[in-house]
Design a protein around this nucleic acid. Structure first.
Lengths: 186, 186
DNA sequence: TTAGGCATGTAAAGTGTTACATGATTTG
DNA sequence: CAAATCATGTAACACTTTACATGCCTAA
């Protein structure tokens, strides 16, 4: 399940050009599978070379030709196969948590900024998911809804955890050392 | 904040060889920053070449020499700097969610397996964190505790979300289409 | 007039993953 | 007798990120 396969999957729904796919990545996949032009365009070229998609060039004025990709029968098969073959990974790589692990080496002001920023990014992610869910209102698939809900729930849990436990990290030590596993209900 | 910087950070606490560091990655960082020998050994070599750590070789019988790395003053400085310079990322890349997005193309049996596996991995991760927290009982830093708690809370939220909403993905449709944002407690 | 949207890509650098290669000692 | 632990690393591969390169149209 790399960017290539994901592009193939999106093309099972609708034909699209690289620019379109990038927008879909930005809206629906951003919170769990980010991708930029640098991976999408090469992916499409590879898929075309492998015969899994066909490409039709639409001339435009003042812009590069729009290359519209459409999935082939071989592509459909390959995608279904990849859904059944792959053992899906779920990888987190958090520089944020790595830093916090060393919080005793960070002064309180900087630490507060780090925590504030992270919470703000989580809240922004939640807003983003809400926004796109409203746009797709009604016409979204069960999978899309599930994935959006997952992102919201996990981001909320993370944000609440940070807010409820950040006091444990400040160097002004008081003796309240309980970790609040159950945060206040939002 | 790459593997290199993280190794440097661990060496601010205690001198260690590559093998030791790998164990620390396995125990404390596994759930948010995995790393294997293939990244750790080259990282140590780079750090030594840059003069950020020194290396002392201890001869052993029947094993390769144990290379014990100790941080230098330049290394301490570089680490503190990296804690203040870097804008920390927090990246998720989930093939699992990508697959679920296309759940309407997956048959119910396979889908159930995918969801079961993910929940089991989340629970295993929670048990893992609990286990290592008990081992470090008392002598762990505030940062380490915070990061462990974060992992637990987020994994629990994810597992509960999956359990509470998986019925929405099965193709045997009943008309109950509510997303359960607030899952059952405990 | 400036920012943002539309539309394509390449090239190099950076990083991580996986497989390979070796081998004694201890524990079950 | 098999598996795990200790202990090192390299090499090839995969993949992504970032910067570069181009340029018009539209809306504020």
């Amino acid at each position: 399940m790399d960017v290539k396969t994901l592009c193939l999957g999106l093309l099972t729904v609708q034909e699209a050009c690289g620019y379109d796919l990038k927008k879909t990545f930005e809206s629906s996949f951003k919170h769990f599978f980010p991708a930029g032009y640098g991976s999408i365009y090469p992916a499409l070229a590879d898929l075309a070379a492998a015969g899994l998609v066909s490409c039709r060039e639409i001339p435009q004025i003042g812009k590069p030709d729009r290359k519209v990709y459409r999935i082939t029968e071989a592509g459909e098969k390959a995608f279904i196969q990849s859904l059944n073959r792959t053992d899906p990974q779920h990888k987190l790589r958090s520089e944020f948590l790595a830093m916090i692990y060393f919080s005793d080496r960070i002064d309180d002001e900087r630490l507060a900024d780090l925590l504030d920023d992270r919470v703000e990014k989580l809240r922004e992610s939640i807003r983003h998911i809400e926004r796109i869910s409203q746009q797709h209102e009604g016409d979204s698939s069960a999978g899309a809804d599930f994935v959006a809900g997952f992102g919201t729930v996990v981001a909320e849990a993370a944000a609440r955890y940070i807010e409820s436990n950040r006091h444990l990290l400040t160097q002004t030590k008081d003796m309240d050392t309980d970790i609040h596993i159950n945060a206040a209900t939002g």
